[in-house]
Amino acid sequence: GATAVSEWTEYKTADGKTYYYNNRTLESTWEKPQELK
């Protein structure tokens, strides 16, 4: 079936920290989303 993983994109900030952005909800988070675990 369809999965929600594709909504999240992993980015890195200029200082090398990783964060996650959800293209559907426009939410961003420092925590790894449940969908990616």
Rank of each mutant, 00 (worst) to 15 (best):
P33F: 02
E27P: 00
T25S: 03
K17I: 07
W8I: 01
G16V: 00
Q34K: 09
E35N: 08
K32A: 08
T13A: 05
T25D: 02
S28M: 15
K12L: 10
N22Q: 00
S6Q: 10
S6L: 07
N23P: 06
E31K: 04
Y21D: 02
Y21S: 03
K17M: 06
T9Q: 10
E31L: 07
T3N: 10
K37Y: 13
S6I: 08
Y11C: 15
A4N: 12
E10A: 06
K32R: 09
E7N: 07
R24G: 06
T3D: 14
T25A: 01
T3G: 14
G1L: 14
E10H: 03
S6K: 08
K37L: 15
L26W: 05
T18M: 08
N23S: 14
E7F: 08
Y20M: 00
E31D: 10
A14E: 11
R24V: 15
K12N: 05
T25L: 03
P33L: 02
A4S: 13
K12Q: 11
K37P: 09
V5S: 13
E10G: 01
L36S: 09
E31G: 04
R24T: 11
T25Q: 01
N23G: 06
G1M: 12
D15F: 05
W8S: 00
N23R: 09
A14Q: 09
Y21A: 03
A2I: 12
D15E: 08
E35K: 05
D15G: 08
N22S: 03
T29M: 07
E27W: 01
T9S: 10
V5W: 10
T18R: 05
T18D: 04
K17D: 08
D15N: 08
T25K: 02
K12H: 08
Y21V: 15
Y20W: 15
E10Q: 05
K12T: 13
S6D: 11
T9M: 12
N22L: 01
Q34L: 14
E10I: 07
T13E: 03
T29Y: 06
G1E: 13
E10S: 04
Q34M: 13
T13G: 09
S28N: 05
L26P: 01
G16K: 02
W8T: 00
S6T: 11
N22K: 01
A4T: 15
K12G: 03
A2R: 13
R24P: 02
L26V: 02
E10D: 02
G16D: 04
Q34V: 13
E7I: 05
L36E: 08
S28I: 15
K37N: 14
T29K: 07
D15H: 04
A14L: 09
A14K: 09
D15A: 06
P33Y: 03
V5M: 11
L36C: 11
Y20S: 00
L36A: 08
L26Y: 11
S28T: 15
T18W: 05
R24F: 11
G16A: 02
E31I: 10
E10F: 03
T18G: 02
E10L: 04
S28R: 12
L36V: 09
A14F: 04
G1K: 11
L26N: 15
E35M: 05
K17T: 07
E7Q: 06
N22F: 00
D15V: 03
T9K: 10
T29A: 07
N23T: 14
A14N: 08
G1I: 14
K12S: 07
T29P: 01
T13W: 03
Q34H: 10
E10P: 04
W8A: 00
T9L: 10
L36F: 12
K32M: 10
L36W: 05
T18Q: 04
E27A: 04
Q34S: 12
S6M: 09
Y20N: 00
K12Y: 09
K32D: 05
Q34N: 13
Y21N: 02
T13S: 07
T3Y: 05
L36Y: 10
A2S: 12
R24C: 15
T18F: 07
E35H: 07
E7H: 08
T3R: 10
L26Q: 14
L36G: 09
W8N: 00
E10T: 07
E35G: 10
E35S: 09
E27K: 05
V5D: 12
T25F: 01
R24S: 10
K12A: 07
Y20L: 01
K37Q: 15
N22H: 02
T13Y: 04
S6P: 12
Y20H: 01
A2H: 13
V5Y: 14
G1T: 14
K12W: 06
E7W: 06
E10W: 04
Q34I: 12
E10R: 03
N22R: 00
E31M: 05
D15I: 03
R24I: 15
S28D: 03
N22W: 01
P33A: 02
